[in-house]
C-alpha cells in the first residue's frame, strides 16, 4: 500500500520536476521497454508498460471525458497502438512518455471525432504527424542556421571585392587580422577598416531580412 500522501502535479507553464514514487520506473526504463516490445515483441515488457501507463491514461481520460466507458476505450486503443507501433519509437527523437502521450492524444481526438462528428477519418495523423515525427529541440536548428548561412552568403557576395576578400579570409580560412594583412600585402589598419565597413553592410543586410 502507498502512504496517504498527495503529490501535487506541477502547474502548466512552470518548470517540471519529475515527482517519482518509489516504484516508478525511470525514463530510460520506459524507453527500453518500448524498444523490447518494438524489436522482440516482448510480452513481459509490454506488461510493464501496461501497468505503468494504463492507470495513468485511464485517469487522464476519465477527467477529460467524464465517462468510464470512454476512458476504458482510450486505454484499450492506446495500449493496442503502443503494441503495434512500438517499433516506430525512436529514443533518439524524444522521450517515451512524450511518445505515449501523443498516441493517447491522437486516440482521444479521433475517438471524439467518431462520436461527435461521426467521422472515421482518423485525422490526428494528418494534424500532428509532421510535428511529432520531427526530432525534438535540435531538429529545427539546422534549418534556421541553414537559412541564416544563406543570407550571410548572399550578403558577402554583394560586398565590394576588397571587403569580400577580407571577410572571406576571416570567415572561411579562419585567419587573424594580421595574418590577413600579411597574406594580402596591405596595412593592418586597412584590414580593420575594410572589415568594419563590411560588417556594417552585412548587419544591415541580415537585419533587414529579420525585421
Amino acid at each position: 500500500m502507498h502512504a496517504e500522501r498527495a503529490i501535487r502535479l506541477p502547474k502548466a507553464g512552470h518548470p517540471i520536476k519529475f515527482n517519482r514514487m518509489s516504484d516508478d520506473p525511470c525514463k530510460t526504463e520506459l524507453a527500453s521497454w518500448l524498444e523490447l516490445v518494438g524489436i522482440e515483441r516482448d510480452k513481459s515488457a509490454f506488461t510493464d508498460l501496461f501497468r505503468y501507463f494504463a492507470p495513468r491514461i485511464y485517469h487522464i481520460s476519465l477527467s477529460k471525458f467524464g465517462s468510464e466507458t470512454l476512458a476504458n476505450d482510450v486505454v484499450q486503443e492506446t495500449m493496442t497502438n503502443i503494441w503495434r507501433k512500438a517499433h516506430l519509437f525512436d529514443s533518439a527523437k524524444g522521450q517515451a512518455t512524450t511518445w505515449v502521450y501523443t498516441i493517447m492524444r491522437n486516440v482521444s481526438f479521433d475517438m471524439l471525432r467518431r462520436i461527435s462528428a461521426n467521422k472515421e477519418d482518423n485525422l490526428s495523423d494528418d494534424l500532428w504527424g509532421h510535428i511529432d515525427n520531427a526530432e525534438e529541440d535540435s531538429s529545427l536548428e539546422p534549418f534556421r542556421d541553414h537559412l541564416a548561412d544563406r543570407e550571410l552568403q548572399n550578403g558577402i557576395d554583394n560586398l565590394p571585392d576588397d571587403q569580400k576578400q577580407v571577410v572571406e579570409s576571416m570567415f572561411y580560412q579562419d585567419l587573424s587580422q594580421s595574418q590577413i594583412a600579411e597574406k594580402l600585402g596591405i596595412p593592418l589598419g586597412t584590414v580593420k577598416s575594410r572589415l568594419r565597413l563590411a560588417m556594417t553592410k552585412l548587419k544591415h543586410h541580415i537585419g533587414e531580412k529579420h525585421d
Binding site: E4, L9, M21
Partner: peptide, 15 residues
Amino acid sequence: TKQAATDGFSALDSR
C-alpha cells in the same frame, strides 16, 4: 506536448 506528457504521466496522486 512534452510538458503535458510529463504532467500527465508523472506520479499519480496516491488517493
